[in-house]
Design a binder for these strands. Structure first.
Lengths: 298, 298
DNA sequence: CTTATAAATCAGTAAATTTGATTGTTTAGA
DNA sequence: TCTAAACAATCAAATTTACTGATTTATAAG
């Protein structure tokens, strides 16, 4: 009878195309992996890998088999997790993707809250941009991801748990007006610096402000809001940051002023995305609630 | 590591709720099954079955786990089949459902043709009514089914391979007209006998003829077209049969006359149904072609 | 031609699964 | 209340399977 172990060996080889490395990844000897694979191929009656002593490559039929095997192994691990998650909520470690414009602001609030509610909870965090995270979730390499919407995630489930607005950050100077709000039109003259290509926050800001791509000075390719704010302090321009970043990035600094962006909100919505028939929906929902609470208390 | 073997043991117990019977079904001893299950439950850290020496029942969480396990085991077998089907077309035995108004007429033509084209092909046939077959396909208990359309099969794929019309069957008498066609209106006076409830052919006929339910004498609950034709011979009334049944049921008998039903056709369409991501789509397509040929040659 | 590399193979061993017999409960019937 | 039957759990022994480390064989590169 087909075994999941054998299938996982095959998947390891698919990844590395190298028996020794794959064996190491599986914590077995090269010879065990070799015989295991031969056994699998014998049982299926096909060649999955075309190989000689020097090269390994996947056959076309082998690719089909591996794709099915991947699904199988993924579902098996989901079954294990389902069982584990019913012992204590979130007991089984969850691998979570978070985008860079959320991670540094949400996580420091999330972890203490989570520890208090679910002491046995364990999270592995992966920080990537939205597009990569969607892909990782789809392929089942991570359990879920936290992104800012709108973002195209066809076929995935979204679990929204937070909405927020953007704030304009500028240097506090003598001749400033004591304004409470700033409009998109006013922003045009303010040498706006945004994150570099690929960060959804840039798109969201341009969308909300109905500004064309060119309006924004691209901040010399800054990849973090922290950097952007440092640049504001260096008098290089101004920027926009989401509400959740306010206290960490600007609250401590008397030289900065933050002004609410006067556009109809919410300016961005924050949500978990998961595969539609992910088995630990409950855990993610639990987690979403904790996130909400964590962000809720100012 | 979780093994498919253990999962299949659990599924066997779910079916029988009896360790010894389940063990027999798995071709292992009761003790092996018992330890296997204990091992599985230990690995998952949960109870799947609540049991004492006298009763076995599934826990709520156990049910969830079993549902996932079923999917897993099904997909594993599909993987095996995928591999096997690439060695020789149709080599791996295929379990096929066929409705009673098709099976006796299609299969005798199909098998010789199939044997000639694909000598290694093997089919297991299950004869049930449409609704049951749809269910069996959905649950993965059979690979595919042949039904007559229209029939509701949401979420399943259909592979149509044949269309045909209905023919009116009546006793050949002295005073008959030599008519070539008969209309629905004329049928009303002809004491029409149809199959009993549940056979889609009855629905199809009433639909095509735009007749209300009550028009048809229900043939005293006949469950086969053969019986109906015998009743026609016994001068109990008349009936309608599909084209594919003509030569077997009426061609040999001089006392019967068959007249084409004058309604816009085709009166019924015959198709395979399969699960959308069934792995042996190719095999079914092959099979559909053979069916078409088999019916095609008169 | 030599060398380094990598998969296959082999023999021995460890681990797992399975069997058959037995035990201990539970239920139903006397 | 007692007895018998049914059934899952358990145990020791046997078998099968999986793994390791060493060796062999084949390949590509120098």
């Amino acid at each position: 009878m087909l075994s999941l172990k054998q299938l996982s060996y095959a998947l390891a080889v698919e990844k590395t195309l190298h028996f020794k490395k794959a064996a190491d990844a599986c914590n077995i000897s090269q010879s065990a992996l070799s015989t295991g694979l031969n056994e699998l191929e014998k049982q299926l009656g096909i060649m999955i890998f075309e190989r000689n002593n020097k090269k390994v490559l996947v056959t076309p039929l082998g690719q089909e088999v591996l794709d099915l095997a991947r699904r199988l192994v993924l579902q098996a691990s989901e079954l294990e997790q389902l069982a584990a998650s019913h012992q204590a909520p979130l007991a089984y470690p969850l691998t979570l993707g978070v985008i860079p414009t959320i991670a540094p602001f949400l996580l420091p609030k999330l972890f203490p809250q989570l520890n208090q509610r679910y002491p046995e909870a364990k999270l592995n965090i992966v920080e990537e941009e939205s597009a990569q995270l969607v892909d990782l979730v789809r392929r089942g390499e991570i359990d879920a991801a936290i992104l800012a919407l709108p973002f195209p995630c066809d076929g995935l489930l979204t679990l929204e748990f937070w909405q927020e607005d953007f704030y304009w950050v500028a240097l506090r100077t003598e001749q400033q007006k004591r304004q409470k709000e700033i409009t998109s039109e006013q922003l045009v003259d303010e040498n706006l610096m945004l994150l570099k290509e690929g960060h959804c926050l840039k798109e969201h800001i341009l969308d909300v402000c109905k500004l064309p791509e060119q309006t924004a000075n691209h901040g010399f390719g800054a990849t973090s809001l922290n950097t952007l704010v440092q640049m504001v302090l260096g008098n290089l321009g101004t920027t926009l940051i989401p509400e959740m970043a306010l206290d960490q990035l600007t609250a401590q600094n008397k030289n900065l002023r933050t002004v609410h962006l006067a556009e109809p909100g919410p300016h961005r919505r924050v949500a978990f995305i998961i595969r539609p028939n992910y088995t630990r929906y409950d855990s993610i929902q639990l987690l979403a609630n904790v996130c909400k609470e964590a962000l809720g208390k100012r």
